[in-house]
Amino acid sequence: MNPMWIDTLFFYFFALLVLGGGVATITCKSAVHSAISLIVSMVGVAGLFLLQHAEFLFAVQIVLYIGGVMVLFLFVIMLVNLDESMQMRQFNRQWLLAVAAVIAAGVQAVWLLSKPADLPAAVPQVPGGPGNVQRVADVLFSQYLLPFEIASVLLLAAVIGSVVMAKKRL
C-alpha cells in the first residue's frame, strides 16, 4: 500500500502548483488573476504539508491563507478600479537587485542541500498514538510558549491598529 512513486508523483504535482502559481502571480496583468494564482500556489503548499503528514498545518493553511487572507485580498482588489491597473506598468525595472536576490536565495538553497543533513529525523506516525493536533499543541504550549505569546501580542497590536485606522472618532 502507498508505494513510493505515488508520493513522488504527488510531490511533483504540488510543487508544480506552487511554482506555476507563483510565476502566474507576478506575470498576470489583472490583479484578480494574480490573486487567484497566489491561491493556487497556496493550495500547492497545503498539499506539500499533507504529504509530510502535517494534517493540522494543511487544514490551517487552507482556513487561514486561502479562506481568510486571500478572500479579504480579493475583496479589496475587486473594489479598486481594474482598468487603471491594467494600464500601469507591470514590472519596475530593477533587474540588478532582482538578479542579486535570486542568486542569494539560490546560493542559500544549494548550501543547505549540499550540507550533510543534520535536521531532526521525522517522527514516525504511531497508529493510536497522540495525533498531529495534540503534538503541535504540546510543543506550542510548552517548548515554544514564549514565541507563541509574543506572536499573539503582535496580532493584538495589528487588531488594535486596524480598529484605530477604521474608526474616525474614538
Binding site: 494534517e55 493540522f56 490551517v60 487552507i62 482556513v63 486561502i66 486571500m70 478572500v71 480579493l74 495525533g131
Partner: peptide
C-alpha cells in the same frame, strides 16, 4: 477518518466563499 476532520470541513466552507465572491465579481 482524519484526525483534523472538523478543520477540513471548516477549511472547505471557507474556500467555498471564494466561489461565491469570484462568481459575483
Amino acid at each position: 477518518d482524519v484526525n483534523v476532520g472538523l478543520l477540513v470541513i471548516s477549511a472547505m466552507s471557507s474556500v467555498g466563499i471564494l466561489g461565491i465572491v469570484l462568481g459575483g465579481w
